[in-house]
Amino acid sequence: MLDRKNNRLLIVLSILTLVIGGCYILYQLNFDILFYQLPSRLNRVVTMIIVGTAIAISTVIFQTITRNRILTPSIMGLDSVYLFIQTVIVFIGGAQSILLMNDFVNYIASMLILVLFTVLVFRYLFKFTGSHVFLLLLIGIILGTFFSSLSSFMQMLINPDDFLILQSSMFASFNAINESLIWITGGVVLLMLVIVLKDFHSLDVIALGRDHAVNLGVNYDRKISQLLLIIAVLVSVATALVGPIMFLGLLVVNLAHEMFRTFKHRYLLIGSTLIAVITLLLGQMLTQYVFKQAVEISVIINLAGGIYFIILMLKESRR
């Protein structure tokens, strides 16, 4: 009964995604510059699908592992490490550094460092902390704070012109993304998606908690460290592609929970991905057509998300 309702909801969301995506691509299309405009818009849409998927999937899994609906993978400190990498590049090489100016080099360097950071720190710590996820997260918070303090210290020292250029990498942006990077990221995200979807039933079991999961035959500790790695890769590639945008995850996963009212990851994974893509499309349309690129998309998403959470809080407190 509930499943049928949720299936219908998925179909509605899919159609909505297609319609909004179509609107975005076709809106005020200028046939004189069609061969420039169309590929550029298609690139953005593909980027939004890839990033939306990565953020939504990683947040759903992360909240399932931690059994907490207000956490996002950003608590693992990856955003801060990303900003730290960018700051260090400017600090050492200046804003003209090839590591910053060349998208491709910057992407590969950021992604490798982020993945390496997660693998080394979290894989090692996961063993060291005896598989206590929350202890791991506490260490993540401390490392995150450490890196963001270090970044702001360095930002004080660099010259203001360099800082302005650096500032642009502090906000997520879907404009002018290098095409080959889109395909690399898309490939990585798709691979992670296949691994997750192949075994999405065990996510349902993990949501019951460690004791139940072990009782039902899930190799819990190994599964968790595998999932943490998948989350890290997803967050790293998405952040390296467009910049820090983790708040989106919190927003869309909570919306998915509100809409689907189920524990089943089949619905949560697909549903929150669709919602993420829709949110990004709407945000991008607002930045492009309403605000004429005056504000960044992440600002709009943070604003919308903030308002949504205030509404949610007011609604909950009235109950």
Binding site: L2, R67, R69, H201, D204, V205, A207, L208, G209, H212, L216, G217, H257, R261, T262, F263
Partner: peptide, 17 residues
């Protein structure tokens, strides 16, 4: 459990192995 899960769905997990 802080999950939206029905009695029947929870009992169904017993068949997971």
């Amino acid at each position: 459990l802080d999950l939206k899960i029905t009695v029947r769905e929870l009992i169904s997990f017993g068949r997971f192995p």
